[in-house]
Amino acid sequence: MTDRDDARVRKALQGKDFPAERNDLVAYATDRGEIDDATLTALAALPEGSYASVEDVVAAVPHRPGSTSNR
């Protein structure tokens, strides 16, 4: 992810309470209606699990959603 992508993820999750599960993060960002397709794809590519903060989410989003490697 680039710094710009990181900012998009942070913006999409602004105001979200943590900890949160991947599906909750995707639903929250989608419900806000301020998410582009690339950011939605990135959030949907997160590994299953609970995230303690938006920083944890940003760190876990794959560099290329759909691939298995991070950053």
Results as ranks from 00 to 15, higher is better:
Asp56Tyr: 00
Arg32Cys: 02
Val61Arg: 01
Ala44Ile: 03
Glu48Lys: 13
Ala59Asn: 14
Glu34Met: 05
Thr30Trp: 00
Lys16Phe: 00
Ala42Asp: 01
Ile35Ser: 12
Ala12Arg: 04
Leu13Ile: 02
Ala60Tyr: 05
Ala42Ser: 06
Asp37Pro: 00
Gly15His: 05
Gly15Trp: 02
Lys11Leu: 11
Pro62Val: 12
Asp36Arg: 08
Ala20Asp: 11
Leu40Arg: 15
Gly33Pro: 06
Ser67Arg: 14
Lys16Glu: 02
Ala59Lys: 11
Thr68Tyr: 08
Glu21Lys: 15
His63Phe: 12
Gly49Asn: 10
Phe18Glu: 06
Gly33Tyr: 05
Asp56Gly: 09
Arg10Trp: 03
Ala27Tyr: 01
Gly15Phe: 03
Ala27Thr: 13
Ala60Thr: 08
Ala60Gln: 06
Lys11Tyr: 05
Val58Gly: 04
Thr68His: 09
Asp31Leu: 13
Lys16Val: 02
Thr30Asp: 01
Lys16Asp: 00
Arg64His: 14
Ala12Ser: 12
Ala45Val: 01
Tyr51Leu: 02
Thr41Ile: 07
Pro47Trp: 04
Gly15Asn: 09
Pro47Glu: 09
Ala52Arg: 09
Tyr28Thr: 12
Tyr51Asn: 02
Ala29Arg: 11
Val54Gln: 06
Lys11Gly: 02
Ala52His: 07
Ala29Val: 08
Ala12Lys: 02
Gly66Lys: 14
Asn70Lys: 04
Glu34Tyr: 02
Asp36Asn: 15
Asp17Phe: 01
Arg32Glu: 04
Ile35Trp: 09
Pro19Met: 06
Arg64Ser: 12
Leu25Arg: 13
Ser69His: 08
Ser53Ile: 04
Phe18Ser: 06
Asp31Cys: 10
Ala27Ser: 14
Arg64Val: 15
Leu46Asn: 08
Thr41Glu: 03
Leu43Cys: 05
Ser50Lys: 12
Ser53Trp: 01
Pro19Tyr: 06
His63Thr: 14
Ala20Ser: 15
Ser69Tyr: 10
Ala29Glu: 05
Glu48Gly: 07
Glu34Ser: 10
Asp56Phe: 01
Ser67Ala: 11
Glu48Ser: 14
Leu46Arg: 04
Ala60Glu: 10
Asn23Cys: 11
Ala29Ser: 15
Ala44Cys: 07
Ser67Phe: 11
Pro65Ala: 12
Ala12Val: 04
Ile35Pro: 06
Ile35Ala: 11
Pro47Asn: 09
Ala60Asp: 07
Tyr28Leu: 10
Glu21Val: 10
Ala59Phe: 00
Leu25Phe: 08
Tyr51His: 01
Glu21His: 15
Ala20Gly: 14
Val61Met: 03
Tyr28Cys: 12
Leu13Glu: 05
Tyr51Cys: 03
Asp24Ala: 15
His63Arg: 15
Arg32Thr: 01
Asp37Gly: 00
Arg8Pro: 08
Glu21Asn: 13
Asp56Pro: 06
Val57Met: 03
Asp24Lys: 13
Thr68Lys: 10
Gly33Asn: 06
Leu13Met: 04
Asn70Ile: 07
Pro19Leu: 08
Pro62Asp: 13
Glu34Cys: 02
Val54Asp: 15
Ala42Arg: 04
Ala27Cys: 05
Lys16Thr: 00
Leu43Phe: 05
Gly49Glu: 08
Gly33Arg: 08
Glu48Arg: 12
Ala44Thr: 11
Ala38Glu: 10
Val57Cys: 06
Leu25Pro: 13
Val57Trp: 00
Gly15Thr: 03
